[in-house]
Design a protein around this nucleic acid. Structure first.
Lengths: 210, 210
DNA sequence: GTAATAATTGACTGACTAGTCAATTTATGG
DNA sequence: CCATAAATTGACTAGTCAGTCAATTATTAC
């Protein structure tokens, strides 16, 4: 346990994650973080000059990880609806597998504890989504609304779907919620004249992983 | 300023509102609240036994006020789409007029600082919305998905629309955002076969206020 | 093996905070 | 005017917390 090589920095970050989401920022003393992480108070401040620097680091890491997870396989999809579906499934799956990180993102997305620079850098990780929406509009598949508004509404819907899915255990119910959420968003986004739903729904995922 | 009759309780609640949204719960000392409200520390604890009781009271009041504002004139509307549009406009208008309260609701909607009983009571104020969604599904106008999921997605979309609208000053741009948000939700909610949009959009509001 | 450096420790400090309480002021009713 | 109750005050307490630092231990380079 002691001695370098056992990376204490990671232990501190992991402990801080769970504590911040369960007790909030001001609600978790640094002394508790270091105690739960199994290090001395001094060690925490050796790696992070302030408590704010700690949450900033955490924030940036999680945002980057989430963005990478959502992006996975997106370029393999041929059309906008396929990309959207892939993105949707990626996001929900990541959210379920990483409930604490998901909660953290929601909780601190607009929080004053995270510095503005960290907020900006975190947001920039998701700029590729913006590009996809723009492309969909250009193709005439997505309705011609303010792309950042569409993105924003999509993201908030996603968050509420993930929250609900996480409350449930039955995989069949989960799939239903995910599908219903997807339908809501797709119908909200799609331009007039674009088919309401693709028949080959479940096959979408099977076609991308041959 | 001194002497009863000048209601200090209201002053405390108002000050707490602005401080809580700008600095968070743990981030605002009770001493600061009382100072900004122009009362002594003891006065705050005379009206609210604990800091938690203060935020609970605030939470319940705001939830009740928001629910009442959203409900206004809803029963005068004849069809589901009309009700949805009315609800939408009510909500956005209230959100713009009361940005601090809006922010407060978002910030503390799932916060552990607010007691579970307050959360439950606050949620119950919005149960009428649940009824409206159910009615829409029964009529075949709203798609047959889990009503509470639909409600939840609608609410989160609403929150992000209000946040965006509040960032903008130009009333024309504001109206556009509100309309685009409404379209997103309506198309996400509506069942197959139901017309995409009502032509008489702006007239909707004029017909209810004769 | 040794010197220089990096990592780690935990007692300690100065500042702050929720809540108390005895004393004081203000309203109320006869 | 007076007595009783309600409202208000602010100094005070007991506890907490972010961050420091001198001392100690481990690592690295030669």
């Amino acid at each position: 346990m002691a001695g370098p090589g056992s990376d204490r920095k990671e232990a501190i970050l992991n402990t801080a994650l769970t504590l911040f989401v369960t007790r909030g920022f001001y609600g978790t003393p640094t002394s508790l973080i270091s105690k739960e992480a199994g290090v001395a108070t001094g060690t925490l401040f050796f790696y992070f000059k302030t408590k704010e620097e700690l949450i900033d680091t955490l924030y940036l890491r999680i945002k980057a990880e989430a963005a990478a997870a959502m992006r996975r396989g997106l370029d393999d999809e041929q059309d906008t609806q396929g990309r959207l579906r892939r993105l949707w499934v990626n996001a929900v799956e990541w959210g379920i597998k990483n409930p604490a990180k998901m909660q953290f993102m929601e909780q601190f997305a607009h929080s004053p504890f995270v510095s503005t620079t960290a907020h900006e850098e975190g947001l920039s990780r998701f700029s590729f989504l913006h590009e996809y929406v723009l492309q969909g509009i250009r193709e005439g598949v997505i309705r011609n609304s303010d792309p950042s508004l569409l993105f924003c509404m999509m993201a908030s819907t996603l968050a509420s779907v993930i929250a609900r899915v996480a409350e449930v255990d039955d995989p069949e119910v989960r799939r239903t919620i995910i599908e219903q959420g997807m339908d809501f968003v797709w119908n909200g986004l799609r331009a007039e004249g674009v088919p309401r739903e693709k028949k080959s729904r479940r096959s979408t995922r099977e076609t991308v992983i041959p």
